[in-house]
Design a binder for these strands. Structure first.
Length: 953
DNA sequence: CGAGTGCATGGGG
DNA sequence: GCCCCATGCACTC
């Protein structure tokens, strides 16, 4: 800072009151209106700038006062006897400290000395010199970030202590703010920040430098800084009211410490270490919304980081997310850690200059998003960030949404198992206003200094994406090695504007496995996908795609049409008509290759296990073997000793049991045909192996039926697999659309099912038309076949398609229930089925629309089903007719099929266990849902299936 | 009878 | 085994 030219004209007043007991070194008003020195104890005329005010302006001082300030003598000069003087915990903890004579004293109750010390996690303070030598420092948490705003809104200028108190406490969380931390006698005017350079001066001027300290003591000190030892941990301090800060300091301190100190102590920044330093590190990190350098946002790493601090700080640095209360966070489950994006923060803050403090977030459960209007709050979050309530009735809580609209919720609790269960009541309007549903995330943050609670939200579809992005950036080296804020283009490699740099990233990086297995909440698991998993899943999906092949015993014939070779599969009649809904055709379903289970052998090599079709024994195979869909022991060329069904299997039943139910596969291979689930103790199909839960897709009855016809079983296998995979999509879609239930746990981003493994269309990497990856090739091949089949069949059937039934049946299909089982009087008349199918009735129109998509005969590998019609606005022309035709066609096919095999009808229902109530959902429903709700997450392959399911023109 | 309310239950961490 | 919390459920309005 440059000082103005010295004024001498009237500088006659002397600086007095050296021993003044006046604690107010400044005028009570932070707005300097007169020409008098800002120092109320001085009568000189102002001529130079002093410390920085909360308004962003500078206290204008006379020459002498300014000099005193610059020399770090201001407090000593003007209010030496004021209360609030403290000794540095390190160099001046005790006046008789062996390290310090005389002890470093810091007038911590005065804003002038704000930058001269930092609050210690363990309680007490440390002078900047010590602090800077031992750890990366932050701004004093005791002071709200507003101190660093410049310019500060006019309305917040000229705050008296009272008004500040009111302001800080006027929000929904008045119990939190502690504007006057140190001394009740400290007036607001004392809480004026100094200019950054003054800090340095002060620090530099400190008489006792760290090197003078013995190493061991340095480490001890650092340890204390980090761990709060030997003093009470901060939370202990808060809880026990013993912070090493005595007397009247405690009451004020406690309320603030509870969150603020703990929150920021080690997100440490040296505020304005120097103008040059600050420039690069601070300004660069300032959010555009923030007009002025915000020290809070800056973080600075010293080469001499204590190892104890290292991880913490590094973690903060590496994190692409806002930092939250380090202590508070440690109290919270990771799933509640706020993961605000810059955009979200900006949205919340709007145009205000307020600083957003992310508090926590929560993914809405079905209950939360339901009509009950009760949002269950994580206990620790509620207790940490919401006002303490002693009565179950609680308190009304005013919450502002990101649009500035205010909502009032009842914050209350229920006694629950000697504990409490906190809820926000009356959230329905807000939830609805935000159009939130189960799986979406609500975020809670607080505007500083207003103290307003702000409720934001994040849609589930974005959550996973952003999470993935974050994970990517996190696991990447988003932060320079020296720990300085990465000022690169990635918003998340910067310090966010709130100044919080979540430190969990490092933790996340260093313990991904751990988090995945233990610390991650179930909810988080649902929506989070680790970067590693993405790669893994992609690979395995491609591998799985490579397994797609014609149904067994049906050699594809090659047809050349217009120069293109098409594989034409022989007819395979699936047991489940509903599969035809997926394919739009009954007959051309390829199947997956023989499902296998990957495991490790005794020596740690990856192997796979396959089950013989005939004897059901499990055989060990090399890792990279791909099997045809039908495989028996006789085909075991890798282990001649076990190439016969008569040979016992290697696995003991126990080993097998361990192998099967664990579902810990690294692929999406499916279990088929009668593997018993350890959880439901029923014959099930295991599908997505990351789901870790069996999917009750196929009942034992169905399996029996399937086994009746071994030819069909094989087809069923592949079809089931795809259908099951699709069902997952529908599962989610239904759930999402209903808003009554949460997303199915299996259908989370960590899931490797067909729905989950590919990025939402339009958001992930796209496959080019020329892409020759397994996925694309398979999809193309299948698409061609489907198109061929369709055209062929259409031409054949169009003539004979009964016009009689066309109108009635088509209408019936469209309006109500395309279920042939009910129409055919089949035995499958599950009451749920009607419901399911009626829910799925929406599907057909969409599917039909998609059939009119522009890519006639050409596959869009990245097509997004729900957008197909968007892409082809004119696609509706003739669409209705085709829709009717297609519907009637399918209807007739189904009828024909059902009349020939009534037993298969039960198989047409997929029993999806959900919340204890089984719900039978036909694949047709699934498809519909995929178009509507889950479409965003749908993979190209599935899109293809959908789009190819209807006649193309 | 449906919506709202308060508590209980049980799965999962 | 404890705690959290999603959800069930009985009860009331």
């Amino acid at each position: 800072m440059s000082s103005s030219s010295s004024t001498t004209a009237t500088a006659t007043a002397t600086v007095t009151n050296n021993n003044s007991n006046n604690t107010s070194c400044c005028s009570s008003s932070s707005t300097v209106l007169s020409r008098k020195c800002f120092n109320s104890d001085c009568t000189d005329f102002k001529s130079r700038k002093g410390w920085r005010l909360r308004s962003g302006d500078f206290a204008e001082l006379c020459d002498r006062c300014a000099s005193a300030h610059e020399e770090g003598r201001f407090c000593e000069t003007f209010h030496l006897n004021a209360s609030g003087w403290r000794g540095c915990e390190s160099c001046g903890k005790h006046e008789s400290s062996q390290y310090n004579f005389p002890p470093q004293r810091i007038h911590c109750g005065c804003i002038v000395s704000l930058q001269a010390f930092t609050l210690l996690d363990a309680g007490g303070i440390a002078c900047m010199a010590c602090a800077r030598n031992f750890f990366v420092m932050t701004s004093n948490p005791a002071w709200p970030p507003l101190f660093y705003h410049s310019p500060f809104p006019e309305r917040l200028k000229d705050l008296s202590a009272k008004s500040w108190n009111q302001l800080a406490g006027s929000g929904p969380v008045p119990w939190r703010q502690a504007p006057s931390l140190f001394n009740s006698s400290a007036t607001q005017s004392e809480l004026q920040p100094r200019m950054p350079y003054e800090v340095d001066r002060l620090s530099a001027g400190e008489r006792f430098s760290a090197p003078s300290l013995e190493k061991r003591n340095l480490e001890d000190f650092s340890e204390r800084l980090i761990n709060g030892s030997p003093r009470n941990h901060l939370w202990d301090i808060v809880e026990n009211g013993n912070a090493g800060i005595t007397g009247d300091e405690q009451p004020q301190l406690l309320s603030s410490l509870r969150e603020d100190i703990s929150a920021q102590q080690f997100g440490i920044t040296i505020p304005y270490a120097s103008p040059s330093e600050s420039k690069g590190q601070i300004e660069g990190s300032v959010n555009p919304v923030q007009p002025a350098p915000l020290p809070l946002f800056a973080k600075r790493f010293h080469g001499t980081l204590h190892k104890g601090v290292d991880s913490s700080v590094d973690g903060q640095t590496r994190n692409g997310r806002p930092r939250i209360d380090a202590r508070g966070k440690s109290q919270l489950l990771p799933r509640y850690w706020p993961r605000f994006t810059d955009e979200e923060l900006q949205q919340i803050s709007g145009n205000s200059n307020s600083v957003i403090k992310p508090l926590f977030e929560k993914m809405l459960s079905a209950s939360d998003a339901g009509r009950i209007g009760r949002l269950v709050l994580p206990k620790k979050c509620a207790e940490a960030y919401f006002p303490p309530i002693s009565q179950p009735e609680g308190l009304p809580l005013r919450v502002q949404d990101s649009k500035g609209k205010e909502w009032i919720f009842q914050f209350r609790f229920w006694p629950n198992n000697n504990s409490r269960m906190y809820v926000l009541e009356g959230v329905t309007p807000c939830i609805q206003n935000m159009q939130l549903q189960a799986g979406d995330t609500v975020t809670f943050s607080r505007l500083e200094p207003e103290g307003k609670l702000v409720m934001g939200f994040r849609k589930a579809s974005l959550t996973s994406l952003s999470d993935q992005d974050n994970e990517t950036s996190q696991t990447g080296d988003g932060v320079s090695a020296n720990g300085d804020a990465d000022l690169g283009p990635s918003p998340w490699s910067k310090v966010d504007k709130s100044g919080y740099i979540a430190k969990e990233v490092l933790e996340a990086k260093s313990s991904i496995k751990k988090r995945k297995s233990s610390t991650l909440g179930s909810k988080s698991k649902r929506l989070r996908i680790e970067n590693e998993d993405m790669i893994e899943l992609k690979l395995t999906w491609e591998e799985a795609q490579g397994l797609l092949r014609p149904a067994p015993d049906h050699v594809p014939s090659i047809v050349v049409i217009e120069g293109f070779e098409f594989e034409e599969y022989e007819l395979v009649v699936p047991l489940d008509y509903s599969y035809s809904s997926l394919y739009g055709n009954l007959v051309d379903a390829p199947v997956l290759g023989k499902p296998t289970i990957f495991a490790m052998d005794d020596v740690g090599h990856k192997i796979q296990w396959v089950q013989c079709e005939d004897c059901l024994k499990w055989r060990k195979l090399p890792l990279n073997v791909l099997l045809p869909s039908k495989w028996t022991c006789s085909s075991n060329t890798w282990d001649s000793e076990r190439s016969s069904c008569s040979v016992a299997q290697e696995l003991t039943s126990e080993q097998l049991e361990n192998l099967l139910p664990s579902c810990n596969l690294d692929s999406i291979y499916v279990y088929l045909n009668g593997i018993s689930c350890s959880k439901c103790d029923d014959s099930q199909l295991f599908i997505c192996t990351r789901c870790h839960v069996c999917e009750s897709i196929v009942t034992s009855k169905r399996l029996k039926a399937a086994k009746k016809d071994i030819d069909n079983v094989e087809a069923l296998g592949g079809l089931d697999t795809l259908a099951n995979l699709a069902i997952l999509g529908e599962d989610e879609a239904l759930l999402a659309s209903s808003q009554a239930t949460t997303k199915h746990p299996r259908h989370r981003p960590g899931c490797s099912c067909i729905v989950c493994i590919q990025p939402p269309s339009g958001k992930g990497p796209k496959h080019k038309q020329t892409c020759t990856c397994n996925v694309c090739q398979t999809v193309k091949r299948r698409f061609k076949t489907l198109m061929m089949k369709r055209e062929k069949k259409q031409s054949e059937k169009e003539a004979e398609t009964t016009r009689k039934q066309q109108e009635s049946s088509a209408e019936k299909l469209l309006d109500d229930d395309p279920s042939p089982s009910s129409n055919a009087g089949s035995a499958s008349g599950s009451p749920n089925k009607k419901k399911a199918v009626s829910e799925g009735s929406d599907d057909d129109p969409n599917r039909m629309k998609s059939s009119a998509s522009p890519f006639k005969g050409q596959i869009d590998l990245n097509i997004k089903p729900e957008r197909e019609d968007e892409l082809s606005p004119g696609s509706d022309s003739g669409g209705t007719k085709r829709m009717l035709q297609g519907a009637s066609e399918r209807y007739l096919r189904m009828q024909r099929f059902l009349s020939s095999d009534g037993d298969s009808i039960p198989a047409s229902n997929h029993t999806v266990s959900r919340g204890g109530a089984d719900e039978k959902v036909s694949s047709a429903v699934i498809l519909g849902g995929s178009h509507q709700d889950a479409g965003e997450n749908h993979p190209s392959a599935f899109s293809l299936i959908a789009s190819a399911s209807t006649p193309a023109t």
